[in-house]
Simulated scan of single mutants.
Amino acid sequence: MCLGIPGEIVELLPDRPDLATVRVAGVRRAVNVGLLGPAEVGPGDWVLIHVGFAMSKIDEAEAAATLALLDGLGQAYTDELDALTESDIT
């Protein structure tokens, strides 16, 4: 199963405008934000992440609701978080 997981942008990487550090369930990872455009997102924004790419910008309420739903999925969500923890696109 492939999931889109909400994450909060912590910072945009100054030397890589297509990458941002994003916090997802306590894990910080570089995520490609190039699909959204450099002026679309910034620190504090929430994005929906799939396979290392921010696919869309979402609001905090939608992020919280999605995280609650994903938490209820159990192992599928845990597997996605494990994959995210092990990933590195820098």
Score class of each variant (00 low, 15 high):
Met1Tyr: 08
Leu3Ala: 12
Leu3Met: 15
Leu3Glu: 14
Gly4Asp: 14
Gly4Tyr: 03
Ile5Gln: 08
Ile5Val: 15
Ile5Pro: 14
Pro6Gly: 09
Pro6Glu: 06
Gly7Lys: 00
Gly7Ser: 04
Gly7His: 12
Glu8Val: 03
Val10Met: 11
Glu11Asp: 11
Leu12Glu: 10
Leu12Val: 12
Leu13Ile: 12
Leu13Trp: 02
Leu13Cys: 07
Leu13Gly: 03
Leu13Asp: 00
Pro14Val: 02
Pro14Ala: 04
Pro14Gln: 05
Arg16Ile: 02
Arg16Asp: 05
Arg16Val: 05
Pro17Gly: 04
Pro17Ala: 00
Pro17Thr: 00
Pro17Tyr: 02
Pro17Gln: 07
Asp18Lys: 05
Asp18Trp: 02
Asp18Gly: 07
Leu19Asp: 07
Leu19Val: 14
Ala20Ser: 11
Ala20Thr: 04
Thr21Lys: 02
Thr21Glu: 06
Val22Phe: 10
Arg23Pro: 02
Arg23Tyr: 01
Arg23Ile: 13
Val24Met: 03
Val24Gln: 02
Ala25Tyr: 11
Ala25Gly: 01
Val27Asn: 03
Val27Cys: 01
Arg29Cys: 08
Ala30Lys: 14
Ala30Ser: 15
Ala30Pro: 14
Val31Phe: 11
Val31Tyr: 01
Asn32Asp: 15
Val33Glu: 03
Leu36Asp: 04
Leu36Asn: 13
Leu36Met: 10
Leu36Cys: 11
Gly37Ser: 06
Gly37Ile: 03
Ala39Ile: 15
Glu40Asn: 09
Glu40Gly: 01
Val41Gln: 06
Val41Phe: 05
Val41Tyr: 05
Gly42Ala: 10
Pro43Glu: 02
Gly44Thr: 06
Gly44Asn: 09
Asp45Gly: 03
Asp45Tyr: 00
Trp46Thr: 05
Val47Glu: 01
Leu48Gly: 00
Ile49Gln: 01
Ile49Leu: 11
Val51Glu: 06
Val51Pro: 03
Val51Ile: 08
Gly52Val: 02
Phe53Val: 07
Phe53Gln: 09
Phe53Ile: 10
Phe53Trp: 13
Met55Tyr: 04
Met55Leu: 09
Ser56Leu: 13
Lys57Asn: 05
Lys57Cys: 01
Ile58His: 01
Glu60Ile: 04
Glu60Asp: 02
Ala61Val: 01
Ala61Met: 00
Ala63Phe: 00
Ala63Cys: 08
Ala64Ser: 06
Ala64Val: 08
Ala65Glu: 15
Ala65Tyr: 09
Ala65Cys: 11
Thr66Pro: 00
Thr66Arg: 15
Thr66Glu: 09
Leu67Gln: 10
Leu67Ser: 13
Leu67Tyr: 03
Ala68Glu: 14
Ala68Phe: 06
Ala68Met: 07
Leu69Asp: 11
Leu70Arg: 04
Leu70Cys: 10
Leu70Val: 09
Asp71Gly: 15
Asp71Gln: 14
Asp71Pro: 06
Leu73Tyr: 10
Gly74Ile: 08
Gly74Ser: 08
Gly74Asp: 09
Gln75Trp: 06
Gln75Thr: 04
Gln75Ser: 09
Tyr77Gly: 07
Thr78Ala: 08
Thr78Met: 01
Asp79Tyr: 11
Glu80Val: 14
Glu80Trp: 12
Glu80His: 11
Leu81Asn: 08
Ala83Ser: 15
Leu84Asn: 07
Thr85Asp: 08
Thr85Leu: 14
Glu86Asn: 12
Glu86Ser: 12
Glu86Ile: 05
Glu86Trp: 00
Glu86Val: 01
Ser87Cys: 10
Thr90Cys: 07
Thr90Ile: 11
